[in-house]
């Protein structure tokens, strides 16, 4: 009933005209920005900030003495390349490959744009080497007399290997000193005709079982797998025979199913 007495709402056109007429009397313009109830907090929304410093850059300066494995330069990407007697690590870090003095250099004959870090053996040597000269190398090894081939000590079960001289505590720690491999047990498992030898290892926690990777590869040793002729990648003749047989087979099958109508050309 109340709806009958309410005044009808003014049309949109009227409202618009009123708004534009009042606009000239307004002091401030209507605000454009809006605020919403929620705010994106994750992802790229608020611009990534600089993280902690990664401590990149030169760790050894030119002419400094380094030994094998020392880090010479840490970098993202390859600002510098490994030169003579240097190598590059997994994250492009340059390491020294032999003891010597660090050299930073360019080698236009090797590459026109690359910068290299190298190691020389004497302080006065320079890099790159003159073209055509033998590469400077160090042996870095010493010669030793090889020990004579000792007779292999065969130990039976329940007997301990003869203790070494001056080894008072040998028998007490014998089991621990033995390699883990020697404790493995070999059993046969599987159906008749498909029996396989399985080696059980002593796992942490005192249980004897196969390693997971061995269980995963068990199918490869099965009878069915062994009966498959191994694939030879380069054997084009076998591939050709196989393909020819397949083509003939499919042609025959097609001829059978469609009454040979389609195969006519």
């Amino acid at each position: 009933m109340a709806a009958r007495f309410t005044r009808p709402a003014p049309s949109m056109a009227t409202l618009h005209a009123l708004e534009s007429a009042l606009a000239s009397f307004r002091i401030s313009q209507p605000t454009i920005g809006k605020r919403f109830a929620s705010h994106q907090a994750q992802g790229r929304a608020n611009k990534a900030k600089q993280g902690p410093g990664k401590r990149l850059g030169a760790k050894k300066i030119a002419g400094e003495y380094v030994v094998t494995g020392n880090i010479l330069y840490k970098q993202r990407g390859t600002l510098w390349f490994p030169g003579d007697n240097c190598f590059m690590g997994r994250d492009h870090t340059i390491h020294a490959g032999s003891p010597g003095y660090v050299k930073y250099y360019r080698d236009p004959l090797k590459h026109p744009k690359r910068k290299y870090i190298g190691v020389v053996f004497e302080r006065n040597q320079t890099l790159p080497q003159a073209p055509g000269t033998p590469t400077r190398r160090r042996l870095g090894m010493l010669a030793y007399q090889m020990p004579d081939q000792e007779e292999e000590i065969v130990t039976a079960d329940l007997t301990t290997a003869p203790a070494l001289e001056n080894d008072a505590a040998a028998p007490a720690t014998q089991i621990r000193q033995e390699p883990q491999e020697s404790r493995s047990v070999t059993i046969t498992k599987g159906k008749k005709g498909d029996r396989q030898e399985i080696k059980l290892h002593l796992r942490p926690g005192g249980m004897y079982r196969q390693a997971n990777w061995e269980i995963g590869r068990a199918a490869e040793r099965s009878k069915a797998a062994m009966s498959v002729r191994p694939f030879k990648p380069g054997d084009r003749f076998a591939a050709w025979r196989k393909r020819t047989a397949r083509v003939a087979r499919s042609a025959e099958r097609r001829a059978m199913t469609r009454g040979g109508k389609k195969s006519k050309k």
Binding site: Y65, V66, V67, T68, N70, P99, G140, M141, L142, A143, Y144, Q145, M146
Partner: peptide
């Protein structure tokens, strides 16, 4: 034939 070569120990810095 009975000589074996082994890496020389390099003194660390």
């Amino acid at each position: 034939g009975d000589v074996e070569f082994k890496n020389k120990r390099i003194e660390p810095l």
